[in-house]
Amino acid sequence: MGGSSSSSAGSAPSPSQTPTVDPATYRHALTGTLGPLDSALRAVDRAHEGGSLNKALDTAATKADTAAMTLQSLATPDNAITGNSQLSSALRQLGQDLKSARGTGGRCATSPRVELGTARGPQRVKEAGRALTALGYDASLRLPRTEQAKHRRLGNGAFVRDGSRGGLGRLTVRNGTGTDAVVTLTRGTRTAFSVYVRTGSNATVRSVNSGSYTVYFTTGEDWNSAKGSFTRQCSFEKFDDKASFRTVRVAGGTQYTVLTFTLNKVIGGNASTSTVPPGDFPS
């Protein structure tokens, strides 16, 4: 007789499932991650321009980088995965923008708040934060205030600084550089006068005293009178040869010096110039 056998099929194991991340847990972790950065950004908002603002920018940049890395490894609910990733990426860019905006504190330094006003990072952070907040995950940050670029100018021929002038010499400056300029004449270490010359314009200074002068000029955009320099596209130069003014009496009258300086590359011109370190430019 043949034997019979029976077999029973065991139940198949259930596939493992990834537990759903509790929204409340993520919400708490998100708040903890963004809190230190929010405090650092508020400090940037309060800081005065200069060393205080630069220090606040450095701190905020570090906090932004830290928050971005933390978000990358954060357990995230399904509906927040995209927004969390976008916010992490935006915070990385914000950190770079905060570092780039840091001012040098010297002449020809655009305000960090102007730099931040044109940066993409803060806008990306706003967009990503709004998307997460709309889903019930508060990702709002107090981004620092910004400023628009200024376009301050003086009138053509206006004196930035004017000393005692009582001679008969005359200096005409023609500005063909494409940007405004300030021309400064010095005798030794003392500034005789500084005159503002708008681009495409001529300005004449009369009553220049006799003597030998070094002629400096700075060009750029947005004249900051407090710093005595332009804030954008600025350069500092001087003419290699000195300007000499003489007044002498001759038969029938007086003979005096009339000079013209052109602030651009003139074909056939013979007045060479040299770049001057910003700190060496006379104030």
Rank of each mutant, 00 (worst) to 15 (best):
R206M: 00
T18L: 11
R113P: 01
Y196I: 05
A109W: 03
D45M: 04
T262K: 13
T186C: 07
V250Y: 07
P15H: 09
L154T: 08
P144A: 12
S8R: 12
D180F: 01
R170I: 14
A181G: 07
R124A: 12
S212N: 10
P122S: 08
G178R: 08
L135Y: 12
L143P: 02
D222W: 01
G35P: 00
V21W: 06
F281L: 11
R46S: 15
Q93E: 05
R107I: 01
S4T: 15
Y213S: 00
A24G: 10
V183K: 06
S210E: 08
T59H: 14
K265P: 03
P19E: 13
Y216Q: 03
L30C: 03
S52A: 15
S39N: 14
P278N: 14
A75S: 13
R170L: 12
S14K: 12
Q93M: 06
L94V: 06
G157D: 03
L53M: 12
S7F: 13
A128G: 06
G50T: 06
L87H: 04
Q233M: 05
R120H: 03
F281M: 14
L91W: 06
A101I: 08
G32Q: 15
T189K: 11
L98I: 11
T218I: 03
I81E: 11
T62C: 00
D241G: 06
M69A: 12
G163H: 04
R249F: 10
A134I: 00
G32D: 14
G35S: 15
H48W: 13
A67L: 03
A158G: 01
F239N: 00
F159R: 07
A64F: 08
K265G: 14
S201H: 05
D241Y: 07
P77V: 10
T262V: 15
R42S: 14
S283A: 14
S100D: 12
G188T: 14
A29V: 07
Y26H: 15
Q148F: 08
G2A: 14
V215P: 01
A67N: 02
G228V: 04
A119K: 04
E237S: 09
L98T: 07
A119E: 03
R206F: 10
L87R: 04
A12C: 01
R130E: 05
N175L: 10
G3E: 10
R187K: 06
T110F: 00
V114L: 00
S73N: 11
V44I: 02
T191M: 11
V160G: 02
G83M: 02
R124F: 07
Q148A: 14
M69E: 10
K150C: 00
L91E: 01
G95Y: 05
D22L: 09
A128D: 01
